[in-house]
Each structure stands twice: as structure tokens, then as C-alpha cells.
Computed example of a mutant assay.
Amino acid sequence: MESNAVLLESKSSPINLLNEMHQLRLLGHLCDVTVSVEYQGVRAEFVAHKAVLAATSKFFKEVFLNEKGMDGPRTNVFLNEVQVADFASFLEFVYTAKVEVEEDRVQRMLEIAEKLKCLDLSETCFQLKKQMLESVLLELQNFSESQNSEEESSTQPSILLESKAAAVAEADQADCPLDPPDSPTDRPSNRVSPEMPATKLKEKT
């Protein structure tokens, strides 16, 4: 009777493997490659494992697969125009899948990722730069909206004052017309003056 196949899978194994390889590199154990980097006269050497570098970088994979012979117990690779801090961050990323850098170094990490053909690091830097750009655009939008709201709030009182002044002026014109009616003393009268009868009596005499 045949037995059914079952799958034995560990979800923590990849992480544990990376952690163990990282610890081995920090201790210098089983390292078989030395990478020398130099930038503007500053030079440093890093030991690492070929398998890890080849699995994460097409550049190193091509170098290791095409090497004809080893100069010694370790292969030596020289990288020019690569800053020491950037390559140290690169190694930390390929061994731990994460690294913390300053914002102004993200572009440099993207450049070294492209130089060494590390797809994972390139995508990570690209996504981070996209988030940073979106954050800046959002801040600019919020600032613009706040400026517009301040301008609107500052113009509203003046508009209210102008409307109130116009209303008061209209009310004044209604209460005090420009051409008021003549006063009673200025109006013509049909009544006979009281002096007229006396004048007529004098004429008769």
C-alpha cells in the first residue's frame, strides 16, 4: 500500500539561514571572498561569502562564475568609485534583507544597487523614493490648502464690512431723500391775506 506524500515546509528557514550567514560573516567564518572598495582615496576591505553575493547580485555572480582561478584562499574583488559606507549598507541588506540609511543616501544606495545589479535593493530604493516624493507632494498640497483657507478667512471680514457699509448707506438714503418736499412756508397758498380787506375799505372812502 502506497503512502501519500506530505509537504514538510519551514516558513522560518529562509530568515534563519540569512541570520546565520550574517553572523558567520561578522565573525569572519567560512568567508571565501574579499571585496575592496575605494572612493576618493578612502579604502576598506570586506569579507563575505560568494554564495550570498552571487545569489543577490548578478554582478558578483558573473564575476565568480567567470573566474579562472583563485589567487589564494579567498577571491579578491576590487570596486572603484564605491563609498565604504554604501557598500557596508549593501552587505547588511543582502545578508539581512533590510538596512537603515539616511534619506540623502537613498539615491546613492539605488546607484550602487544598479552598479552591482541587485534587483531587490533597486526595487526597495525605488519604492522608498516614490513614498518620499508622495509625502513631499502631500505636504505641499496641505500647505497650499492652508494658505488658501487663511486668505479666504482674511477676506471674509472685509467683505462683511463692505456689505454692512452699503446697507447703512442705503438706509440713510431711504430716511433722508435727496429732494425733500418744500416746507409749508414755501408752498403757494390760495388763502386771502388778512390785510386785503383793510386796503379795499380805504379805497372806498
Rank of each mutant, 00 (worst) to 15 (best):
K61E: 10
V63K: 00
S135T: 13
R187H: 06
N16Q: 05
A55Y: 06
S144W: 05
P184Y: 11
E38K: 07
L24C: 02
R105M: 14
A166W: 05
T56C: 14
E103S: 15
N19V: 05
T205Q: 08
R187P: 03
T199I: 08
K50P: 04
M196R: 04
I112M: 04
V63P: 00
S122T: 08
E123N: 12
A97Q: 06
E38F: 05
T56E: 08
S57G: 09
P177N: 07
N142Q: 14
E9A: 15
E45W: 01
M196L: 13
K58V: 01
V33Y: 01
E114T: 01
K202S: 10
A88S: 12
V106H: 03
V52W: 01
D172A: 10
E38G: 00
E145H: 08
A113I: 04
T124D: 00
D179A: 02
N80A: 14
P197M: 05
D175Y: 13
K130Y: 09
E123M: 11
P188Q: 05
E102S: 15
N19K: 11
L79I: 07
D186C: 10
F143D: 15
K58Y: 04
K164M: 13
L26Q: 07
F78D: 07
R25P: 03
S13K: 00
E162S: 13
V168K: 10
E102G: 15
T56P: 00
A171E: 15
D179H: 06
L30E: 02
S89C: 11
K130C: 09
K129H: 03
V42K: 11
D175E: 15
Y39A: 03
V136F: 08
F59T: 02
K68T: 12
A97R: 01
L26S: 04
V6P: 02
E150W: 08
F143W: 10
P194N: 04
E100I: 12
E170S: 14
L128G: 03
N66R: 10
Y39V: 03
R108P: 01
S146N: 14
N148D: 15
A166P: 01
Q156A: 12
H22Q: 09
E139Q: 12
P181D: 08
K68N: 06
P188A: 01
F93T: 05
E139N: 05
A174Y: 09
A88V: 00
A44Y: 00
S10E: 03
L137P: 02
S36N: 12
S57P: 10
V47A: 00
P184D: 14
V42W: 02
L201H: 05
T185K: 12
N142P: 04
L121R: 06
S163M: 10
V99C: 11
R105Q: 13
F87A: 05
L79K: 04
A88M: 02
L79H: 08
Q173N: 15
R191D: 03
R187V: 00
K117R: 07
V33M: 02
I159N: 00
T199K: 02
V106R: 01
F46T: 01
L121N: 06
F78L: 05
R74G: 05
E81W: 04
S12I: 13
L133F: 08
D71H: 09
A97I: 00
S13Y: 06
